[in-house]
Design a protein around this nucleic acid. Structure first.
Lengths: 220, 220
DNA sequence: GCATGTTAAGTGACAATGTCACTGAACCCC
DNA sequence: GGGGTTCAGTGACATTGTCACTTAACATGC
């Protein structure tokens, strides 16, 4: 159980005790299992989403069946794309998917609006969240429009591995990260393998030479 | 001279007279000639930008010299990317360029913040502006990652022409719209020409068969 | 007029990426 | 251990990106 989730968010931790107590009453705590769709074209929420724990992957699908990951929402962040979707009339096809089991705080639209009006700290938090996502998307556009696939893949491998050396993922999943086709990922990974930067087995990739990958990720 | 610019914007026209009068005092009116850089990496504004008249093209540049247009800001809209840029620490490389002579209203950050706090109408306007841009960027990502160049080019030709039949632009400029290379645009336009969808002369494109272009733009 | 420089557009070769249809390999489960 | 399923490898080809170059259109000064 969660004692006081308002501790967890930069935008709420700085608020006066009275406001936070009100929030605790008004918000709902939601848990979802890994793999659940948090939001999507058929499932547009009407509230603000704070991610208390876990990670959400926000991706976009083409009608030809290819996917691309736009960004990830980590614990402590809010997911503003949902609020954007509320306002948008147009059809769009972004979806949020729970990448781990998640715990989220759902704040009704009305409470959200009042909070934005009354609390400067919270306002800053919300605008920062929007800005953060705009910047994230600028980065995606830059990568997709101008980046080379081997560079992007090297970069993504390092990100996904974090401090570890092994990644459990399929070529198809990597392709869906980058918005490309599986065959392209296979080709590039084979090249990486030939250069002994990685080793592969079904569903697993071992990063043998992170330094070389970092160099590749920084090149071009 | 502008009599009362608050008439012009959805977010300000609905405000009480007293608030609008205060705005008229606090905001500054700025004019810029066609071709001027409204904002950019070296020129980050610290205020909210309302575009009163004209049009701004927001584009992103790669370090290899290619460009892509992200969206356009029309009269009556605000440009929130500037506010996003304020908050972002990271280097980004989007720039806003006056596509016509423009007249803009510059609202100091402080006045902006107070307005967001006090006026629900204005708040709605600001959030709608953010959402609009997020959606625009989603569209760009979708196009670049999954769209075919001939389709995108046909679409862009129709948009740029509007109700007219002729466009005055170079292949290079079209390439910079779409984030591709001039040679690619030349190739595709030659194909369109062969099919008698367009006619070309140096610096000009005549749309002969808009219907065919629309079909191409809708295909794939 | 004409020479000259500049910008726009065309061209061919090649590399990188996307698409398709298929094969082979690893894993799962009974 | 057989049979189905998912994952990865392969070759052919289409599209797009890159490079180095040529040709054409326009602008300017004489």
């Amino acid at each position: 159980m969660i004692a006081d989730w308002t501790e967890r968010f930069q935008g709420t931790a700085a608020l006066p005790r009275s406001v936070r107590d009100r929030l605790l009453k008004e918000a709902r705590i939601v848990e979802m299992p890994k793999g659940a769709q948090v939001f999507g074209p058929a499932n547009v929420p009407d509230s603000l989403f704070f991610l208390y724990d876990g990670r959400i992957r926000v991706s976009q699908s083409s009608d030809t069946g290819r996917d691309i990951v736009l960004y990830r929402v980590d614990a402590g962040e809010s997911c503003v794309l949902t609020t954007a979707c509320m306002l948008a009339e147009e059809a769009y096809n972004a979806e949020g998917m729970a990448e781990t089991d998640i715990t989220a705080i759902v704040l009704p639209k009305l409470a959200f609006d009042r909070l934005v009006a009354e609390e400067e700290e919270f306002r800053k938090f919300v605008f920062a969240a929007y800005s953060r996502r705009l910047i994230d998307l600028l980065r995606v556009v830059d990568d997709v429009a101008f980046g080379h696939m081997d560079v992007r893949l090297a970069e993504r491998l390092l990100t996904l591995a974090g401090e570890y050396k092994e990644i459990s993922t399929t070529h198809q999943q990597l392709a869906s990260e980058l918005g490309t086709a599986r065959e392209v990922v296979s080709r590039i990974l084979q090249d990486f393998q030939k250069r002994e930067m990685i080793a592969q087995s079904r569903g697993h990739i071992l990063l043998l030479d992170k330094q070389a990958l970092r160099e590749r990720a920084a090149s071009n």
